[in-house]
Amino acid sequence: MAEQEYWRWTEYRHHDESIDPRAGAIVAAGIDVGSVSSQAVVTVDDRLYAFSSMRTGSNSPDSATNALNWALEGTGLTPGDLACVVGTGYGRVNIPFADKAITEIACHARGANFMYGPSVRTLLDMGGQDCKIIHCDEQGKVRAFLMNDKCAAGTGRGMEVFADLLAVPIEQVGALSFEVEEEPDPVSSTCVVFAKSEATGLLRRGWPKSKVLAAYCAAMAHRVVTLIERLGIEKEFAITGGIAKNAGVVKRLQRELGVEPLTTTYDAQIAGALGGALFATALVRKGKGRKA
């Protein structure tokens, strides 16, 4: 029997049937090849048209190609129809068909500005292997940022490790962590490796999984709050990246910070790729699109 992979989250794609890409002037794409997940976003004249999100494979160029092809699936478009492609994320320099590489910090800020509106001033991007705090202006331009990419505490990868340890599918972690009578103290270890041994000890002491998850989500939230406080928080505040979908972390973070994050109907995980597509569109307008 194959072992269940509890960390494995659902890959997805979507395109907006109400938009006719052939009617638009500029069709552009952004591809965010992250350390854990890759997203591709296709925009039509600054409107979100199609997107995909999937796990990054061992090879960045393949991951970028797969994500883009999947986003384009069923749209009738081919990569040749794109006026410009911007690559971002950790694997951005390894996307052969990208016209330009732009840092994920700039792209996330730009994407968040689109998704949450121009009032966003502090952005928390919780990615697979890093965590960033970004201050930006009303145009989505980065003014300052702070990043933790040395340590798995406070990243999606850390949460995956915990989902596996507790045998809880990662998409259920948030909801389950609230099935506790009383909020436990956070686990005391910051380090994911030590937190894991601590959690194993708690399970042996008879703690239910929900309570252990509550203790870990709280510790993760605390870790991120410490990082946020180093740069300071200005309203409005928004969260992007995979962990934005984990209410177990987001609600505890909000409780500790005392600041409510903005909400959006867009998918918070595609912010970087979306920012890339918007930059690509702007490049086309400046006559700096695809080099034929």
Binding site: S58, C151, A152, R157, G158, V161, V192, V193
Partner: peptide, 16 residues
């Protein structure tokens, strides 16, 4: 990678 969690993934990639 410095972090043991990230280093583990790096070791797996190196093996691959």
């Amino acid at each position: 990678a410095q972090c043991a969690v990230f280093a583990e993934s790096e070791v797996v990639s190196l093996l691959h």
